[in-house]
Structures are given as structure tokens and as C-alpha cells.
Design a protein around this nucleic acid. Structure first.
Length: 450
RNA sequence: GCCGGGAUAGGGUAGUGGUUAUCCUGAGGGACUGUGGAUCCCUCGAGCUGGGUUCGAAUCCCGGUCCCGGCCCCA
């Protein structure tokens, strides 16, 4: 019996691996053009890093284990926390802002389905320590460019927690998580009923989240004016919302520590202006709240079609995590792209360099190896393949043909005695004698064109 | 964790409670000891797993594993 892959994991065959590599490179080229530098962090971390960030409830979906020394470790379920941990311990004294990006596998113990696996890849960026509107616009525009670079058309929704959290400040702390959850889950009727029940339906929350785009922004500005007049500083969200207020028995990541979010409508308006300057096509949508307590400013999500139930391919926003990991308070903006979901809908041309086969008779094997060595130093690079099965010339040519070789170089005693080699064009079925140097030149010309 | 559908050579498949389990493709070799993907020949290669029913199970039943889709959740 053969051994199976663990549930929710995948093997990537050469073709798929090549496709993933190209898509990754296309998006990383964009990151590079925007000045983001790649970092990488360990595959496993102390469990505490993730529970601290996202609450104890993530334990249900985390691959955690004690090591032989009794430490509680976890396979990383995401990459923002590790990157911020690294920032706090190694990069706090480096010039601001820090533009970091990453690509790595992550692990979650979840039920696999379309676009969801237990081992998956995230590609993301963090812009640490910049001014909010500028950073937010840059992050959103950057993710837009990255997706465009692989031919993915998508739908960008941008929300603002500064406003939502300030509005929630008018509601009893114990009710806030539930309201957030209902906004996030788009449970409109339940939200309306609940706000009625607690006597807060006058806030305008329902009207706000039902509006999209420019109208939503106008409404938001109106609300902010009213809120601004009556706001008391101490009335902003306090950071000790009791998690008992969560629905009993419910599993959710929304139980982490909350952070302050100031009502700075002017900042959000600036973000919107800058996004327009970047030429990003987006939709203002205050229903985007990303549930989590550490988000503090603009938040955004990007959706794509053709992905079944898992439509979201990117999520991000402005957050405060540095202080949570023991660093100085530093607000950052970041986003993560679901690489596997993007791979499902990517539009990139797949061209493969067709290899060159060295076809030789057994008596000149040593010379064939030397020739292979020369050709492998050539630029542009081209796969050079030597038979290792002791096959006949016929069989070698057959193998070359079925591997899609562009050229075969035939090497035998006759050729070597004449000081030349036979270059066979596999597509045309023609062949000619050349010196090795001439063959190199011809191959260079051919592969430069393609 | 829940619901539904699946699992037969490396890939794709057919079929039946009863001899050597279809077919296509693939892979290796040969016809073709120095020239191609055709053709022909040979070879390799399979009923997820554990139990039950039965004279006999790949087929029927139950559990498990994995896959696909949906729910839940999605840092």
C-alpha cells in the first residue's frame, strides 16, 4: 500500500510548480518595484505568539504541539504575527517606514474545500510606521497592482474602523462584539432587531452599512460630525471588552485585545483621495470590519469570482500589533493575499523553454558529457539533457521527440573524427553539421528570440 | 464539528455476487546493432482500508482514511 498525503495537503507536479513560480515572481516583481524587501520567519513559533494576537479560540484551528523540551509550539497559521514579532525584536531601531514582504506556507486545521487547504501559501506585505492615509493608500494600490500583474480582476472594498468603533462607543461595551460580528457577517435583520432591543437604532449604523461608495462616504461624514460634537475622550472603546460577552459556545477569533481607534474622518477622506490619485478602482463599504480587535483604521478586502464559497483573495488594513508583542506603539498597514486562491484564477501565459537533447553513442559518452558541460554554461540558459538509460540512438531521439525537444545534437565517432557535430532541428526534421562553437551561437540566437 | 457525492494500474475509464477484471493513455524494451511522436510485437502496472454477510465480495452492509462540493469558521 502506498502512503497518502495528509489531509488538506497537496503535491505540486512540475507543470503546476512552474505556474506557481511564475505567478509568485510576477507579484514579487511588483513588490520589489514598490521598494518592499522580502523577509522570512520560522515555520513554527511559540504558540503564544498566535494566541496573543488572535485570542485563545484560534487553538481549535492551529497545529500546535509540545516539543521534546516541553515548549508549546505551533505551525504558523499566518504570517503577520511572525513578521511583527521579528520587527519588534530586530527592526524597531531601523529607519521608518519599514517596507517588508513575505511569502510562505501556513497551516490551519480546517475542513478542506475549494480554495481552502490545511497547508496553504500567503503572500503579503507590511508597511510599518508610516502615516496612516499614505500607508493605507499605498497598501491598497499595491495589492491592486499585484493582482493585476497576474491578470486577476477583482473587487476592492474599503471600510473604516475609526468611524465604526467610535459609533460603537455609544453602545454598552458588552454588546459591541456582537454588533461587530453581525456587521461582519452581514446579518442585517438580526442587527436591526438587536439595535432596537438595546435602544440604539438611532445611531445610523444600519443606514451607513447599507450604503456603498460615495453615498456611504457622505453619510459617514454626517455621522462623524454628530459624533465629534458629543464625543468624550474616555468614551472610545476601552480595551477590556469581556470575552464572556461573546455568544456562548461560539468559536471565533474575535476575542483578542482591542485597540483604540480614533474617529479621524479627515484621515479616511485623505486615504480615499490618495486612492483616487493612485487610480485604484474601489468601493467604500463600511460593512468591511474584519472582526479583529487589533485593526484600528482603514480595512479592506478584495474578492474575485470563480472561487466557489471562498471568494476573498486578500484582506488587510491598519493595525496596532507592535505593542502587543512588547514593542513601542507603532501603527502599521498590511495585507495578505491568498496565494492558492489566486492560483485558481490566474491568467498567465505558460511558456516553457524546450530542451536540447544530446543524442550520443555509447563509445563517445565522455565527450558527450564535456559538450553538455559547455552548453550548460551558455546564456540564455536552456535545459540540456543527456541520456542516462543507455538507450539506442533511435530510442534517444524518440525520447527527445516526446519530451518536446527543439533540438537534438547528435554525437558519435564519425562527428568527433570530423571535428563537428550534427545539429538536428526537431520541429523541421532537418539537420546540419557544425562545430560546437557554431552550435552555441545558433542556439543562443534561437533562444533569445523566443 | 455537520450534510451530501465519490474512491478500480502513473492518468482517464468499463463492468459484473462466481474462472486469467475491460478499454484508452502511460512507462520500459524490441522490430529498427547511427536518426523521431506512426505501425506492429513483448513487458510493467489496479478494485482505498479494516471488519461483517456469503460456499464465494472489487461488487452488498458497517466503521475508518482520503478526495470533491456545501455549512460552520476563516487570524
Amino acid at each position: 500500500m502506498t502512503i497518502q498525503r495528509p489531509r488538506g495537503t497537496r503535491d505540486f507536479l512540475p507543470e503546476e510548480t512552474m505556474k506557481r513560480g511564475r505567478a509568485r515572481k510576477a507579484m514579487q516583481d511588483v513588490l520589489e518595484r514598490w521598494g518592499y524587501q522580502e523577509v522570512s520567519t520560522p515555520t513554527f513559533e511559540h504558540l503564544e505568539l498566535f494566541t496573543k494576537k488572535s485570542g485563545a479560540s484560534v487553538m481549535e484551528e492551529i497545529y500546535s504541539f509540545p516539543d521534546k523540551g516541553g515548549r508549546d509550539l505551533a505551525l504558523r497559521p499566518e504570517l503577520t504575527a511572525p513578521v511583527m514579532r521579528m520587527y519588534v525584536s530586530e527592526l524597531q531601531n531601523s529607519p521608518k517606514p519599514q517596507r517588508l514582504c513575505y511569502f510562505g506556507n501556513c497551516f490551519r486545521y480546517e475542513r478542506p474545500q475549494k480554495g481552502r487547504f490545511r497547508e496553504f501559501w500567503q503572500l503579503g506585505a507590511e508597511l510599518i510606521g508610516g502615516a496612516k492615509p499614505d500607508s493605507e493608500a499605498e497598501a491598497i494600490a499595491l495589492s491592486d497592482q499585484m493582482l493585476k500583474s497576474v491578470g486577476v480582476t477583482c473587487d476592492i472594498h474599503v471600510g473604516y474602523l475609526g468611524l465604526i468603533r467610535s459609533m460603537l462607543g455609544k453602545i454598552d461595551a458588552q454588546h459591541r462584539p456582537q454588533v461587530m460580528r453581525m456587521i461582519d457577517k452581514k446579518e442585517h435583520e438580526a442587527l436591526e432587531a438587536f439595535l432596537q432591543e438595546i435602544g440604539q437604532s438611532h445611531l445610523g449604523l444600519q443606514e451607513l452599512i447599507n450604503l456603498k461608495g460615495k453615498k456611504a462616504l457622505d453619510k459617514a461624514i454626517d455621522i462623524a460630525k454628530v459624533l465629534g460634537q458629543v464625543k468624550e475622550p474616555s468614551d472610545i472603546l476601552d480595551s477590556n471588552v469581556p470575552s464572556e460577552s461573546m455568544q456562548a459556545g461560539r468559536s471565533s477569533a474575535r476575542q483578542g485585545r482591542s485597540v483604540d481607534a480614533e474617529l479621524r474622518m479627515d484621515e479616511f477622506q485623505e486615504t480615499v483621495n490618495l486612492l483616487e490619485a493612485y487610480g485604484v478602482d474601489f468601493k467604500i463599504d463600511f460593512e468591511i470590519v474584519r472582526g479583529l480587535e487589533y485593526y484600528s483604521g482603514t480595512v479592506f478586502e478584495i474578492y474575485a469570482e470563480g472561487l466557489g464559497a471562498q471568494r476573498q483573495i486578500c484582506g488587510g488594513g491598519t493595525y496596532e500589533l507592535a505593542s502587543l508583542f512588547g514593542g513601542k506603539e507603532t501603527s502599521s498597514t498590511g495585507f495578505g493575499l491568498g496565494f492558492d486562491r489566486i492560483m485558481e484564477i490566474v491568467q498567465i501565459e505558460e511558456k516553457q523553454t524546450s530542451p536540447v537533447f544530446l543524442v550520443y553513442t555509447p563509445d563517445v559518452k565522455v565527450e558527450a558529457i564535456r559538450i553538455a558541460k559547455t552548453l550548460r554554461r551558455m546564456d540564455p540558459k536552456v535545459p540540456v539533457i543527456l541520456d542516462v538509460m543507455g538507450r539506442s540512438l533511435t530510442a534517444q531521439l524518440k525520447a527527445a521527440a516526446s519530451a518536446g525537444a527543439g533540438f537534438a545534437i547528435i554525437i558519435g565517432r564519425d562527428e568527433l573524427d570530423a571535428g563537428s557535430l550534427t545539429l538536428r532541428d526537431m520541429k523541421e526534421g532537418t539537420q546540419e553539421s557544425f562545430t560546437l562553437a557554431d552550435i552555441e551561437d545558433r542556439l543562443k540566437m534561437t533562444f533569445l528570440d523566443s
